[in-house]
Design a protein around this nucleic acid. Structure first.
Lengths: 150, 150
DNA sequence: CAAGATTGATGTTTCAATCTTA
DNA sequence: TAAGATTGAAACATCAATCTTG
């Protein structure tokens, strides 16, 4: 028996089940927000990340890409769409002119807040109601622990 | 203060962090398999699901779509590609001629086993090594608990 | 030469419409 | 009439190549 099989097949099934289940959950929650705002999932993620980046609700393209595990090309296009919708503004950085920063506009701040409210409702009803606040905390903790050794 | 705010902003940040972290993890594990097999993530998911569906490694299009939270259109095209690669075979159901079933070919069974080995290695090294087998079990349990009340 | 960002081409997924069968 | 599956069009994300700046 080699190292490949050491964890038993059950380990792999646990992982695939967790992956599929998490995907179902994330889809269900995001769809709730998408349906009421018309925004695709990636745009919602960008808006919420900027909302959670006080005090100026500003991040660079690469910061957005790193946090969301997106390609920089993808971030360029998401922020293009958000810019055309008037929800964010892109501005070149003064000190390093290679850098482009994305900032929530007042309208974007409002949209992000609305999306956050809708998502919070969904999390409350579909997650907290089933595993409690401590359940969510344990879930987030486990994911973070795996992420740390990155 | 209305129900929307009840869970505190921290609850929402925990969720967004968990979502981003899980996405990073899933991407990292799958990329490992994709790089060595040339198969996109969705094809890998279909192969593994069929592998875990004994005794005949057969599922219908809608079963695949439901388990993976894919559109049926998407499943049609994934199985198209897998069929062209000779990894699965599509056959009409005898008793209900609307239904199409996908079955692993001998070659597909081998490919699925290989993908499972690669993924199991990645899970072992990147997940078990950090949170242990019981950590993965807790993670899967929490996700399943949220999924149940579906 | 390396890092940040963008563009065009490519692959994948979904949506809407359609076809077939129950 | 509804359910299962497929098709073509559109949306989205990634890759490779390119441009600019440090």
């Amino acid at each position: 028996m080699d190292a490949t099989q050491a964890g038993t097949p059950a380990m792999l099934e646990q992982w695939t089940a967790a992956q599929a289940g998490f995907h179902r959950l994330a889809t269900r929650l995001t769809d709730e927000v998408t349906r009421r705002t018309g925004l695709p999932a990636s745009s919602i993620q960008v808006l919420l990340l900027l909302l959670q980046s006080p005090p100026y609700h500003t991040l660079t393209m690469t910061q957005l890409a790193r946090h969301l595990e997106f390609s920089t090309a993808g971030i360029t296009k998401v922020t293009d769409r958000l810019g055309q919708s008037g929800l964010i503004e892109r501005s070149p950085c003064q000190t390093d002119r290679r850098v482009v920063r994305a900032t929530l506009t007042p309208q974007g701040l409002q949209a992000a807040g609305h999306a956050a409210d809708l998502l919070a409702d969904a999390v409350q009803q579909q997650v907290i109601a089933r595993i409690g606040e401590d359940g969510l905390a344990r879930l987030a903790g486990l994911v973070a622990a795996v992420d740390l050794g990155r």
